[in-house]
Design a protein around this nucleic acid. Structure first.
Lengths: 244, 244
DNA sequence: TGAGGTAAGTTGTAGGATGATATGTATCAC
DNA sequence: GTGATACATATCATCCTACAACTTACCTCA
């Protein structure tokens, strides 16, 4: 149990806190691209930590392409385009507007991917997807496990596209959403458990079995709009099922 | 000039190399989720570096959610779903198949985003997009600068969706592709400079001005398929312009 | 047998020392 | 005065040692 808490709470280590501070300063624009960071020594004094801690923090920012360190000169803020990694601020997701935007991105990714999957899936893929579907269809529809099964369902479809990047991106976005919803439920006990609509999933699965890209895409789009609604996010529908 | 080279080559620092090694070991499956990493001391002996260097490397992996370190116990590999960041291995992009997959993802993202942008753009957005278009339309069509303008064009369209996540994701994917093509040109002088097809861009822009989502989507899709072809990647078209 | 304490191992943090690199300054030859 | 060279300084890169905090396993003892 304690292990569970540790995994969720993510023990705040000193380097992590320093990195978060600097990261926020960069994102907020207080440190513009090209600007030079204080020296490691200045930072270690400012935060009251050892230079080692500062270096670990900077190593993280560097790995993300947020800053560039030049030996003998200093560390400089890089332009946002040069980022080597995508990261989503979980704090920001507490804002419903941001959650809405993330659902919109998810819809784009998953709808077209469902179409791709319908065209490329083989029997092995269908079996994996069916297994996930069965796991979430049981009577324990409101349990934690069925949420995992839901996620697995979506990931398996992404995998059926045969495109590892699509799989990575969709897994990532879904996981951010899941984590955010989970967190909201933990902090606000009034939050109901989200019901999973099995029917929507079945329709997606059937379209995949039939190998019908258009139907799979439409079903996926309807499902994600529905899922967003069920967690209190009204998704602006920008596209009716089939184009005229 | 030397500065330019440094910015491109990304000086291989020791922590970076250690992190890359461990990262590959995890991605390749030699270290499965749940497995424990060697102790920091063992790693420092194995690589012949100080424990400090190892710690900086581990700090990176930890920030990415690839591993979890527990004080007094050790560091453990996390499941791929728990990643806190998306990162694309630039080595892998040298393989044409992977480049093809990345273009496919880009196509999905940008096509629908173009439709969104057409529905939501305001005059300010159109001005920014037009400015980028003009910059790449000049006689210096084959120059490095026009490639930057091309990227800016796509980023500005992403920005016109009003969805910051979409903007982040598209910027990221485009930048990875740009970097990879740039690198290929550097190492293989036979590579021609890629010509930018201004006409395709103009068609996208006109659809945005007209506020026609379907046209914008179709034009963007055609453009990305064309751009892929021009760099030697044949993109499997999974969707004809307009659905019947 | 069970409870408690102890020791060993591991990560977290601190602090100092040295090497490598870039930059500005001062000196000196011409 | 001008240019080149040497030097001093600032900064990051790496290494080393030590200790604190935490976990685990084992051992002792009632």
């Amino acid at each position: 149990m304690k292990q569970r808490l540790a995994a969720i709470g993510t023990v705040e280590t000193l380097p992590h806190r320093v990195a978060a501070f600097l990261s926020r300063e960069i994102e907020s624009g207080e440190l513009n691209p090209g600007a030079r960071l204080p020296t490691e020594q200045e930072l270690s004094e400012k935060f009251g930590v050892s230079r080692n801690v500062v270096r670990e923090a900077i190593a993280q920012l560097r790995a993300d392409g947020m800053i560039e360190a030049r030996q003998g000169v200093g560390a400089f803020v890089l332009a946002p385009e040069q980022r080597a990694a995508i990261r989503i601020d979980r704090e920001a997701l507490k804002d419903t507007h941001n959650m809405e935007r993330l659902f919109e991105l998810r819809c784009i990714l998953e709808a077209e991917s469902a179409a791709l999957a319908a065209a490329r899936r083989n029997q092995g893929h269908l079996d994996s997807i069916k297994a996930a579907l069965d796991r979430m269809g049981g009577e324990e529809r409101w349990e934690e496990g069925s949420i995992d099964a839901d996620l697995l369902f979506h990931r398996e479809i992404a995998r059926a596209t045969g495109n590892s990047y699509i799989h990575t991106f969709i897994s990532f976005v879904c996981e951010q959403i899941r984590h955010s919803i989970h967190y909201a439920r933990m902090t606000n006990p009034l939050h109901d458990l989200v019901e999973i609509n099995v029917g929507e999933h079945v329709r997606i699965y059937e379209a995949l079995v039939a190998g019908d890209p258009a139907a799979a895409e439409a079903a996926m789009r309807a499902h994600i709009v529905g899922a967003a609604n069920r967690v209190g996010v009204k998704l602006p529908i920008h596209k009716a099922g089939g184009a005229k």
